[in-house]
Design a protein around this nucleic acid. Structure first.
Lengths: 178, 178
DNA sequence: GTATATTATATCAGTGTGATATATTGTACT
DNA sequence: AGTACAATATATCACACTGATATAATATAC
């Protein structure tokens, strides 16, 4: 088999919250999963069609006016498929950092070029961290609703790793300084 | 364009150190890049052939006895292609953690199932961290050779993020505890 | 009124994965 | 000496996913 297909599960996951369109699924991937997952239209729309054919989701055409808009809902079968996947052990956690690749082979261009990659990385993390911290603060306030605890877990992961990244940036700059 | 091709650069990077076979490149990816990059035979061998056709590497058949063994070397053109890439800004850093995906949709299976994913993740990190720390200790000892500094950067990245992960694991278990 | 942004779906070439096939050489055990 | 097993070594392929592009309707701003 090739890479195990996981777009199925991402879609079923979001549809387990509420019915929505493929476009809305893409938006949620880019906002809520952004720090640890990604997904493109090129896999979302074909997967939605497969799931519909397999009876795991249902499609409803909602055209106020004339525009095509396909709202998908999860079926009971889809929900049990999602639960099954959630209960199975994790197959793969993957990091793919081009920055680290450029640092590993950095000797070829020397210290200054390599330092620039570290600074760019640091700038990016420093920009993103406040948004993640805001997200954690907002989710931590909500005490009554159970589902927020699960989102809080992933947001906290982002905060803790980003803090680790910034600590590393300091060490890394030191190592390359003359 | 699809996903920007980076196996070219990984191969040129390793060949910039010394000539080697595709099999040896795979081994080095799995040992030295393991914490932030991956690569499979299915992309290594075809890419080696493309690079050879493009004149970025040269192929030499070394068959002591009768076994086929293709040793690749980087050309001057290949080295300048590598340098060019190293100087260009990073295109994409990506995290793809199935564990986080299962936590995000964890409400569907509840606290106990979700806690198990966290424990599995924690066990894995606790097992790997000592090896990374040993790697850092070994690289930090070497003061004279410049190239070790670049490997040290990436090993330290692993240590710092893994420590962040373990800190998060404690917080995460707390959040789900009753 | 009209330019621009957003919503919305669909498709495709290119890149990489994980599995499998094939064959040789080296090592461990009996 | 024989034989199982692991390691070395290359090659190929179905499938998964990306990033780009095409198309078109609706909403918003000026």
């Amino acid at each position: 088999m090739a890479n195990e297909k996981r777009m199925d599960q991402v879609i079923l996951g979001f549809l387990s919250h509420e019915p929505m369109t493929g476009y809305e699924i893409k938006k949620r991937i880019d906002t809520t999963l952004h720090y640890f997952w990604s997904g493109s239209y090129g896999s979302i729309y074909p997967t939605l069609n497969e799931l519909e054919k397999g009876g795991l989701v249902t499609q409803e055409t909602a055209g106020e006016g004339g525009r095509k808009k396909l709202i998908y809902s999860i079926t009971d079968e889809g929900r049990s498929k999602l639960k099954e996947w959630l209960k199975n052990p994790v197959v793969k956690d993957e990091l793919r950092y081009e920055t680290l690749l450029k640092l590993f082979f950095g000797k070829e261009i020397g210290k200054e070029g390599t330092l620039q990659h570290i600074r760019n990385f640091e700038d990016h993390i420093r920009t993103e961290l406040p948004y993640l911290e805001m997200c954690v603060a907002r989710l931590a306030e909500i005490q009554d609703e159970e589902d927020h605890k699960y989102y809080l877990l992933t947001a906290k992961f982002g905060v803790e790793t980003y803090k680790g990244y910034l600590k590393w940036c300091e060490e890394a700059k030191q190592i390359l300084s003359p």
